[in-house]
Design a protein around this nucleic acid. Structure first.
Lengths: 210, 210
DNA sequence: TTCTGGTTTTGAACGCCGTTCAATAATCGC
DNA sequence: GCGATTATTGAACGGCGTTCAAAACCAGAA
């Protein structure tokens, strides 16, 4: 028993070791320079070994990216329980989300632009009832409800396009390098103002309809 | 003279031929499967030949993508001269832009996500005075002016985040496959409603400030 | 201790890729 | 027709992800 346990533990350790090496390479050279062979040489094993611990390169990426995205989601989770008004909660958590993403641009890009089913299962937001499975989406839906929105379908769809829009800003800021902190700060501020306007306007519309 | 002209023409023709072959491969197999060797084999020349007509693979992509993006911009240009109210012009041209992008998802993704300076020079929108160089941006700025906006800086920044947001929606719709026409239509409709809300709200704010 | 069965690790290979470069073939100006 | 220019090629380099049969290793049984 004990021996099998040790074996399993060692196996897990080596998996971690591979993931760590991959992370280090990404940190040093960028995600597009990551290769199975480089991971192997860094841990001083032959490339074929990797394939006894992971099915393919994609699986390695998937593991790493899962961790990254989880970190972002965990960073914005606390706002949920804040006592501030919903608008402020939306603003604060969106800002945090953007800042987290910008701190790990390669990883964010990689995970959010991946079309691999396994990754997509963690990042897609445009399916029905997505709010149940996507914390960021669910959080925004909750805020909208706190703001008095009632149409379930409109809430979810608004949350979906909201996060698409936020995603767009982030990716463009990542893609267009040479933006300094000042410009980024201004863009985020402008974006939040603009997008919150969209939410408030929709409230106005709803109120008028009643 | 004439002979040199013919030479130049022939050279141009072969360049076109290479570009056409590349386009065909992209159409058949997707952009990520495009390779210099495939282009060469399709035009029945050796791979090395390609490098006498283009500096590298990137330059080929750049030429193709330039054409693609131009097509989108040309498709939305006419709305500029329409007599409809600015809100309608914004809605209509944004919708057209989105639809065009969705018709050539691979190409759109490739050009808008490329970080290569040459490509970036055609697609970046987050720099100062971008409205002078970016038709889509300039158009939106014009509409905002027609709506009575006056703060030059706010106009440009709003236009920037507006297109970032639109870009985000498009990329997510492209990335998350399995969306049917109905869902896409609903998302676009919802997005336009939402984002126009943002614009109108900003107007309201401005009016209140005065 | 030696053998056995399973696990871990490797080396070599396959078939791709982008790119370079010296050598050859074709074409032109004279 | 000849020398220079241009077009084209074949072979090679170094990289990639991945596969697979063979080797090395190791736990427990005889």
């Amino acid at each position: 028993m004990s021996i099998q346990e040790r074996r399993a533990r060692e196996r897990e350790e080596r998996r971690d070791c591979i993931l760590q090496a991959a992370q280090a390479i990404i940190a040093e050279e960028g995600i597009e320079k990551l290769s199975v062979r480089k991971i192997a040489s860094r841990i001083e094993y032959s490339p074929s070994l990797i394939y006894h611990y992971f099915q393919d390169k994609e699986e390695i990426l998937h593991h790493l990216m899962g961790g990254v995205y989880k970190a972002i989601l965990e960073a914005i989770a606390p706002y949920q329980f804040s006592e501030e008004p919903p608008e402020e909660k939306i603003k604060a958590s969106t800002r945090k989300y953007i800042e987290m993403a910008l701190q790990m641009p390669d990883a964010y890009k990689a995970i959010m632009l991946s079309s691999v089913p396994g990754t997509l299962a963690h990042t897609s937001i445009l399916f029905k009832d997505a709010r149940q499975k996507r914390p960021a989406l669910g959080m925004l839906c909750q805020y909208l409800e706190e703001l008095g929105w009632e149409n379930e379908e409109q809430i979810e769809r608004t949350a979906q396009v909201y996060w698409c829009a936020t995603f767009g800003l982030i990716i463009r800021m990542i893609t267009e390098k040479d933006l300094d902190h000042m410009q980024i700060e201004r863009l985020i501020e402008n974006y939040l103002h603009f997008i919150l306007g969209g939410i408030q306007q929709s409230v106005t519309c709803r109120k008028e309809e009643q």
